[in-house]
Design a protein around this nucleic acid. Sequence first.
RNA 1: GGCCCUAUCGUCUAACGGUUAGGACAUUGCCUUCUCAAGGCAGUAAUCAGAGUUCGAUUCUCUGUAGGGUCACCA
Length: 473
Amino acid sequence: MNNPENKEQIITRFAPSPTGYLHAGNYRTALYAYFVARKNGGKFLLRIEDTDRERSEKQYEANIFETLEWLGLEFDGMERQSDRVANHKAYLEKLIKEDKAYISKETPVKEGDRAEVIRFRNPNKVVTFTDLVRGEISVDTTDLGDFVIAKSIDDPVFHLAVVVDDYEMGVNHVIRGEDHIPNTPRHILIMEAVGAPIPKFAHLPIVLAQDRTKLSKRKGALPLTDYRDRGYLPEAMINYMAMIGWNPGGEQDIFTKDEIIDLFDITKVQKGGGIFDDVKLKWVNREHMLKLSPEEYKKNLETFMPEHLSTLDTYKPRIDSVCTIVRDRLEYFKQIQEMYDEGDIEYFFVAPLYDADILLCSEKMRKGKDLTHAGLAKILATCKLELEKLPEEKGEFVEGGEVKWNKESVKNVLWPIAESEGRGIVLWAVRVALSGKEKSPDPFILAETIGRDETLARIQRAETFLKEKTIVS
RNA sequence: GGCCCUAUCGUCUAACGGUUAGGACAUUGCCUUCUCAAGGCAGUAAUCAGAGUUCGAUUCUCUGUAGGGUCACCA
């Protein structure tokens, strides 16, 4: 038994049980407990509540460590509840000796029930406590009866174990979900019986699923490591989770972890539950992705890039440019694979196949002009002829300076042709010649990305394709 | 059902008892020299209801209503 000597230091804890994959609802309480500790120079402890041997599994425990590490929620101490049974037993014995608890004969009602359990002698009184987020709460414990605190002297039940562990670990701020409010009076009764000081409580609002009931695995809540595996940024996850149930006021929406620690105030958390909204999470994540340096962005993106692309010769020289193009479009890094599946990535590295109907732009864009496949081939030939005049060298565009191959110079060459032949017709055709797709980035950035040789080659291919089409038809 | 908690746009939320009730996401429209994306601008949209306190209630009190949580020899 160690009574905390420094009563000034705030000690919080996260006490998950490894009986399943934990989701945002669980980790949001960890986050707030972490914030309170860090903000006040206190300690944040982890306690694995694995006393339920039946349901606790090693893989779930491993996932807890993994998630905490991913989020960067470092803890200042860790205990496994299963390692503490001797301590629980000591308190149990003491309580029985003092007649504050007793061994009770039972008639088992369901399978696994024992004929003998340890019950707490309930003083049957009104318990009142002050919750940091809700204010005063008081409950009459009479209807709780003499509740069970242990299945046997070696098998404490949750209520006894938390109280003993929090006390011995020096936890003085119990920050947990609202679903524990009904348990709190029970815990306070045990604390009083054991002589433990009453900690401060903060019961956080529940994180809800779309249907406004408690978020759960059954409701589709994912383990946080799934978000990691989809290429969400931990800082974004923290940012978003922190804002369900709390915000600092003001009009800023995007925060770093350190900024939140600095601003966090447990007394300002919301009392009502909040829905976990994947759509907003994506937006927050994109904002954090946008803050990444080009190097960091590329590093993240490359872990999700389809392998067969990254082995191509064209990959290295073009990937930086692809990163900047894709930057506006991705909400999480794994989306690059969805884009790939849609056929929106491969053309950056490999020449596309053509479809004559797509090459020929829509009626609307033609603005009434007649256009045959042969006519379009001629226009592409002109574009190619003009583009060939540009030097191969890549480089920054300088107004009035040396001309190089980049999106500005390509645009300067193509623009006059587009003006005379029809913008829709020319720009569409060149773009589709380069991408093969109805929808893609503009032709100038594409030309810059794939380079002079490849641009000319693709326009040539499209031109040839159209001519062949003309002969056939 | 008992006990407990909660209640501002569809969602997350802001607002010393005095604001045209603000912002963000989503949504709609327009602009953005071809499409898409991004971006810009504009718009739609909320104080659960009823009493009371007050010169004045989103804000305080009560009642109702609705929602949620919890009622284990799980945690």
